[in-house]
Simulated assay, not measured.
Amino acid sequence: MKIENKRNGNGGYIEMLKEEDENKEVGRLTYTINPEEKKLIISYVMVYPEFEGKGMGKFLVEAAIKFAREENWKIYPHCSYARSVMNRMNDVEDILLKS
């Protein structure tokens, strides 16, 4: 799998591609950045039905966490799926915004 971050200004998406299948899209996570508050807001996580149940959504959330940490931002998971994943993680207390 290949993960690409397509940032455009104060927003963008992280896309997961299946390289061995002509870069077929597996899923994506969309986000908005609030630079004044140093915050990344996860808006939506989507995985195509044929790839569901294989942890692909969690990989996308982990990619967003890595991106936010590189930029020294906090994350607000507006998306209920992302919030659920992050609430079950033990190593995100430093970056997770509850509200």
Score class of each variant (00 low, 15 high):
A82E: 11
G53H: 04
A82Q: 11
N87T: 07
R83Y: 12
E93T: 05
I95G: 08
N10I: 00
I33V: 11
G53F: 03
S80G: 10
K54P: 09
E50W: 04
S43M: 14
Y48M: 06
K98D: 10
W73I: 09
K74E: 08
V47L: 03
E71Y: 04
K98P: 06
M56D: 13
N72D: 15
I95M: 04
A64D: 02
N8G: 02
K58G: 05
N5A: 06
N5C: 12
S43R: 14
M89G: 01
N90K: 14
P77T: 06
Y31M: 07
A63K: 03
G53T: 11
G57F: 10
A68M: 04
K74H: 07
V92I: 12
D94W: 08
R7F: 02
N23S: 10
A82M: 13
I42P: 00
K38E: 13
V45I: 14
G11D: 04
N23L: 08
F51E: 01
L97F: 05
V85T: 08
K24H: 09
T32L: 13
S43G: 15
G55R: 05
K66G: 12
G27M: 08
E15H: 06
S80P: 15
E20W: 11
W73K: 10
A64E: 00
E36P: 03
K58H: 08
I75A: 01
L60D: 01
A64C: 08
L96F: 13
R7Q: 15
I3R: 02
T32I: 13
K18P: 00
K58Q: 14
G53R: 02
L60Q: 02
K98W: 08
G53S: 03
Y31N: 05
I75G: 02
M16W: 01
N87E: 15
F67V: 11
T30V: 07
A63G: 02
R28N: 12
M89S: 00
L96P: 06
K98Y: 12
R28S: 03
Y44T: 12
K54A: 12
G55P: 11
V26H: 00
K98R: 14
E52K: 07
E37T: 10
E52C: 03
L40M: 15
Y48W: 04
E4M: 11
P35A: 01
L17C: 01
V85P: 00
P77S: 08
E37K: 15
E62C: 12
P49Q: 07
P35V: 05
G9H: 09
K24A: 12
V26P: 01
M46D: 14
E37C: 02
K38H: 10
D91T: 07
G12R: 11
H78Q: 15
R28W: 06
F51R: 03
P35T: 00
V45E: 03
I3S: 05
V45F: 11
L29G: 07
E4V: 14
F59G: 00
Y44C: 04
G57N: 13
K18D: 13
E4K: 15
K18F: 05
M1G: 07
T32Q: 14
Y31E: 03
G12Y: 10
S99A: 11
N87R: 12
I33R: 02
T30P: 04
N87K: 13
M16C: 11
F67D: 14
M86T: 09
E22W: 04
N23H: 10
E19T: 11
K24D: 09
C79W: 14
E25D: 00
R83C: 01
L29E: 07
N72C: 03
R28E: 05
Y44W: 13
Y31A: 02
C79K: 10
K6F: 08
